[in-house]
Design a protein around this nucleic acid. Structure first.
Length: 595
RNA sequence: GGCGCAGUAGUUCAGUCUGGUUAGAAUGCCGCCCUGUCACGGCGGAGGUCGAGGGUUCGAGCCCCUUCUGCGUCGCCA
């Protein structure tokens, strides 16, 4: 039977105590981390959020306490009163290893069943199990550290933006489903049956309307929802540090963001970020790194070798060039030592991204390669020069349309760097990627889509191409990238009714459909809109990267798994017919498909 | 939807390629002993739907098919 806390009051936390407290009487509460019963002597390691401390029960203690101490098991919740004393045998590995608590009173406030896995620093249990018993997993010190880091970053954000004159304003969770973008999570209306709210993919339109309303510096730590497939760095519900400013252009938003990022790194990791953060255009990012989120912790840049190979009689290259594509390469330093198997593995990486294959060559005195029979000695020299390669390097070549070449080589670059151990975990390399294309062509939709979102302002100098050459139009959008991960992004927004209508039209909206979907916004735009822009930073990703975590799940208290379900609560789950009836909803799928 | 990896005591894993007695180890758990442990120690014990279903075989944890679950990834993510 559990004992009550009645009359006992916690006086301090476990790891707060030190040598200076010797002689003090304290009351501690926490979990039994481990027991060591030596017969006459019993040691209990007590754990709370701050750390651990050793309790000792000796033959001098009353029989009742000794019996009780012998009954204590891992993860029981204990309350103890006792005095701090120096240990006769200190433990250097423990923060509180010089002292211990000589117990005067011991209560077992709650008994624990044997836990399904040990509560310890490293995650030694299978993630499935950890997530089912998330509340136990969260007892682990490194999970607690992650959530505390998260708290610190959020606090740092609120402090920084408050100081800069931003106002935190909440926006609705129940909003209107809008076309474009990710799949919405829908919430049925009971009052208006057959109609649905959508959970926000981001507070985008609301924050723009707040600018229009005159709150010229807004921020919010906002929950966002996107019903898309998950990844190691993507959850269906996630948190953004969202901001918007009036009367600004790109530089203003980027500068205020840089200040924030620098402050967070200083506050949380005591790392000084070099400012200004390097800026590269989207075009340059693609050309040099094959990615719009380049990892700048290592080199191995892509090189365009189209000119060097255009006269080679190799059909793979020829056909790619004739179709308007390019031939590019990544040079893997020292890659001549790679086995055939290792090289093939790099080829497989390329194929994942739709490349038909990967040609390779080691341009040494006795060259090796996958297409040597097509090459004259001067061809090899030309490729070597164009790639900037050395004799013992491996030149990996992909020929295709640019989008495929970039994607394949961008991925190859990372895979090779990872293999060579060039990616340092404790290194933080930030950059801005700017001048994104305004539109990208969707094969699936058969039309141009907004690359950022439909409210993004085109670059002033490209406005004239809007109707004539959409692929050429760049936007006032910018992403902030940390170690090859998109940390955040934003843009300057359109604040002109007519320009917004032009963009909607280009995206395939008719006047009527634009009115129907975004009428409230277009209407608002008739009442004086300040030029504005903003950005959102992925809080989860920021915590993940700064905390050195491999998965975003490790920085979210109760995350979802790959099929968007929660292994602990088993959500989503069927609901009562009565609930559905009230909502006017009939489920069309068979029950077997639901589970 | 595609591709890849994984699933065996409570837990972490070995065993699977090459089918063959009663499926092992470590740790945890239970009992007894133990006065300075901290990965306490000693002795003893319990603990298995080898993810599930089907097939091949005299015989399947192991081979084949289907399926479920988790992870990574492509597509998708304005």
């Amino acid at each position: 039977m559990a004992e009550t806390i009645n009359g006992m009051k916690r006086t301090c936390m476990c790891a707060e105590l030190g040598e200076q407290d010797v002689g003090k009487s304290v009351t501690l509460m926490g979990w039994c981390h481990k027991c060591r019963d030596l017969g006459g002597l019993t040691f209990i390691t007590l754990r709370d959020r701050t750390g651990e401390i050793q309790l000792v029960i000796t033959p001098d203690n009353a029989e009742e306490i000794r019996t009780k101490a012998a009954k204590v098991r891992s993860e029981d919740v204990l309350a103890v009163n006792g005095s701090v004393q120096l240990r006769s045998a200190p433990n250097d590995k423990m923060k509180t290893g010089k002292i211990e608590i000589a117990v005067d009173e011991l209560r077992i406030l709650s008994e624990s069943e044997t836990p399904p896995f040990y509560i310890e620093e490293d995650d030694n249990a299978n993630e499935q199990l950890r997530l089912k018993y998330r509340y136990l997993d969260l007892r682990r010190p490194n999970m607690q550290r992650n959530l505390i880091t998260r708290h610190k970053i959020a606090k740092s954000a609120r402090d920084y933006f408050d100081e800069k004159g931003f106002i935190e304003i909440e926006t609705p969770m129940l909003g209107k489903s809008t076309p474009e973008g990710a799949r919405d999570y829908l919430v049925p209306s009971r009052v208006k049956q057959g109609s649905f709210f959508a959970l926000p993919q981001s507070p985008q339109i609301y924050k723009q309307l707040l600018m229009l309303a005159g709150y010229d510096r807004y921020m919010q730590i906002a929950k966002c929802f996107r019903d898309e497939d998950l990844r190691a760095d993507r959850q269906p519900e996630f948190t953004q540090i969202d901001l918007e400013m009036s009367f600004v252009d790109c530089d203003d938003v980027m500068n205020v963001t840089e200040g924030f990022v620098a402050k967070v790194f200083k506050d949380v990791l005591d790392i000084t970020i070099e400012q200004p953060i390097r800026r590269i255009t989207w075009q340059e990012a693609m050309d040099r790194y094959g990615s719009d989120k380049p990892d700048l912790r290592f080199d191995m840049e892509l090189k365009d070798i189209t000119d060097a190979v255009k006269d080679i009689d190799f059909v793979v290259f020829k056909s790619a060039i004739e179709a308007g594509g390019t031939v590019r390469c990544v040079t893997v330093p020292g890659g001549s030592s790679f086995s055939r198997k290792e090289i093939d593995a790099l080829g497989e990486v390329c194929k994942t991204y739709k490349a038909k294959g990967m040609a390779w060559i080691v341009p040494s005195a006795e060259p090796r390669g996958s297409f040597l029979k097509f090459l004259k000695p001067e061809d090899i020299a030309n490729i070597k020069a164009a790639a900037g390669a050395n004799d013992d390097d491996l030149i990996c070549i992909v020929a295709d349309k640019n989008s495929v070449v970039w994607a394949a080589l961008g991925a190859l670059r990372i895979a090779a760097a990872d293999k060579l151990g060039l990616i340092k975990k404790d290194d933080f390399k930030l950059c801005w990627v700017t001048e994104f294309p305004m539109f990208e062509y969707s094969e699936e939709e058969g039309r141009y889509m907004a690359m950022h979102h439909p409210f993004t302002m085109p670059m002033d100098e490209d406005l004239d191409f809007l109707e004539s050459d959409q692929g050429k139009v760049r936007s006032k959008a910018y992403d902030i990238v940390l170690n090859g991960c998109e940390l955040g992004g934003g843009s300057i927004r359109i604040h002109d009714h007519d320009l917004q209508m032009r963009i909607f039209k280009l995206l395939g909206f008719t006047e009527e459909s634009a009115e129907e979907q975004f009428g409230f916004l277009l209407n608002a735009f008739r009442f004086g809109v300040p030029p504005h822009g903003g950005l959102a930073i992925g809080l989860d990703r920021m915590v993940m990267l700064m905390g050195g975590c491999q998965s975003i799940r490790d920085v979210i208290a109760f995350p979802k798994v790959q099929n968007s379900s929660d292994l602990m609560t088993e959500a989503p789950a069927p609901v009562d017919d009565k609930q559905l009836e009230e909502l006017g909803i009939k489920v069309a799928v068979q029950e077997s498909n639901q589970e």
